[in-house]
C-alpha cells in the first residue's frame, strides 16, 4: 500500500468518526454537545432522559447506519466484480425482492391466518424472520441454478427474473390486502434504521461479521476474477468455490440488512463506484476497507438528513439514499468516461 492510500484512509476514518458523533448529537430532541459526550462516557448528565435517548436510541441507530452502509457497499462491490457488470448491486440476485415477498406474505396474508396467530406474525421479529427466509429462499434458488449454469451473465438474468416473479406475487397480494395492511407494508418498504434494540443489534452484528469475514477471504479470488473467468481458471482458481463464497457473503450481508432495516436503495450500487473514483484502483485489498469506511460515512450522513434535526418528523431513509445516490451515479457518468470497475 503506498503513501497516497494511507492519507486517504486516514482522512476517511476521521470523517467516519466525525459523522458518527454528528449523527449521535442530532435528533428530534435537542441535546447539548457536552451532555452527549457525558452520556457516552457514562458520567453525570443533567437529565436522565437525555442519557437514555443517547444510549438506547441514537447510539444503536448510528451503529446500525454504519453496518448498513458498509455491508450494502461491500456486497455491491462483490456483485459488481463477480458479474463483471457495473450495474450489479446486492439486489440483482433477488435478495430484496425475496425479502419483500416474505414480508408481504406475513403482513398482507395475515388476514388469512386470523386472530392471535396474525398478531404474532406481524410482530417485529415475525417480519425479520419472514424477510430473512424470503431472501434466503430466493438466493437458494439462484444458488441452485448457479451450480448448474456456468455462465455468470445467465445467473444475473435469472436473479432479475426471480425479482419479477416475486414482485408480481407482491402486487397480487396487495390487491387483496386491506388499507391498513397495505400501509404497514409500505412503511416497511420505506426502510428504518431506528427500530433496533441492543439485543437485536447483537444478532445483527454477529451475522454481519460473518459476512465480512467471508468477503475478506474472497479478496484474492476477486482480484483474480478481474481478469475474467478463463484467466482466473488458468491461474488455478476454483471458480465454483469462489463464486459460492462470494454469493454467500453477499446474501449474509444484504439479506440480514434488508431483514432488519427494510430494502435500502442505491447504497449498494453507488458506494463502490464512488470509492473507485476516490482511490482509482481495482485492487480489492484497497477497495474493500475503503468501501467499508465510505459506506458508513454516507449512511450516517443520509440518516442525519432523514432525521430533520430538531423537528418531530423523520423522513423515510430509503427516499434519502435514493435522492443522494441517484445524482451521484449520474454525476459520475457525466464527469468521467463511464462506470469502470
Amino acid at each position: 500500500m503506498n503513501k497516497t492510500y494511507t492519507y486517504s484512509f486516514l482522512a476517511l476514518a476521521l470523517t467516519l468518526v466525525l459523522c458518527f458523533f454528528v449523527n449521535i448529537s442530532l435528533g428530534s430532541v435537542s441535546i447539548p454537545l457536552k451532555a452527549v459526550f457525558n452520556s457516552l462516557l457514562n458520567s453525570n448528565v443533567e437529565q436522565q432522559s437525555w442519557q437514555h435517548i443517547i444510549l438506547n436510541y441514537r447510539l444503536p441507530k448510528a451503529i446500525t447506519a454504519i453496518i448498513v452502509g458498509s455491508g450494502l457497499g461491500i456486497s455491491g462491490l462483490l456483485m459488481q466484480t463477480l458479474f463483471r457488470n457495473p450495474l450489479a448491486g446486492p439486489f440483482v440476485l433477488g435478495i430484496s425482492s425475496g425479502a419483500s415477498l416474505g414480508v408481504a406474505l406475513v403482513i398482507l396474508g395475515s388476514g388469512v391466518f386470523g386472530g392471535v396467530l396474525a398478531s404474532l406474525f406481524v410482530s417485529k421479529w415475525g417480519i425479520v424472520i419472514a424477510a430473512s427466509l424470503g431472501s434466503f429462499l430466493v438466493l437458494l434458488a439462484v444458488l441452485m441454478v448457479s451450480i448448474r449454469v456456468r455462465d455468470t451473465m445467465a445467473i444475473l438474468i435469472i436473479g432479475l427474473m426471480f425479482a419479477s416473479i416475486t414482485a408480481a406475487i407482491v402486487s397480487v397480494l396487495s390487491y387483496f390486502g386491506s388499507a391498513e395492511q397495505l400501509q404497514q407494508y409500505v412503511f416497511w418498504g420505506f426502510g428504518s434504521l431506528g427500530n433496533l434494540s441492543w439485543s437485536d443489534l447483537t444478532i445483527f452484528l454477529i451475522i454481519y461479521v460473518l459476512g465480512i469475514l467471508a468477503s475478506l477471504c474472497s479478496i484474492k479470488s476477486l482480484n483474480t476474477l478481474l481478469l475474467g473467468e478463463n484467466y482466473a481458471k488458468s491461474l488455478g482458481l476454483n471458480i465454483k468455490k469462489s463464486r459460492l463464497i462470494i454469493i454467500i457473503a453477499t446474501s449474509l450481508l444484504a439479506g440480514t440488512i434488508t431483514a432488519f432495516t427494510g430494502p435500502i436503495a442505491f447504497i449498494g450500487l453507488a458506494i463502490p463506484h464512488l470509492t473507485r473514483q476516490i482511490f482509482n484502483t481495482s485492487n480489492h485489498k484497497i477497495l474493500l476497507p475503503a468501501v467499508f469506511l465510505l459506506g458508513g460515512i454516507v449512511m450516517l450522513v443520509c440518516d442525519s438528513i432523514a432525521q430533520l434535526p430538531n423537528s418531530d418528523y423523520t423522513l423515510p431513509i430509503n427516499a434519502i439514499t435514493a435522492l443522494i445516490g441517484a445524482p451521484v451515479v449520474i454525476w459520475l457518468l457525466v464527469r468521467k468516461r463511464g462506470m469502470v470497475f
Binding site: 482480484n223 478481474l226 488455478g236 484502483t281 470497475f341
Partner: peptide
C-alpha cells in the same frame, strides 16, 4: 494468453502482470 478480453480494464499494467503471481502468493495475495 487467451483471445478473450480481460474483464476489468481499470487495472494498471503492473497490477495486471502481478496477478500472474497469484498461484504463489498468500491468501490475501
Amino acid at each position: 494468453v487467451l483471445t478473450e478480453k480481460i474483464a476489468s480494464k481499470n487495472l494498471s499494467v503492473f497490477e495486471l502482470i502481478a496477478l500472474g503471481r497469484q498461484p504463489y502468493t498468500n491468501w490475501v495475495g
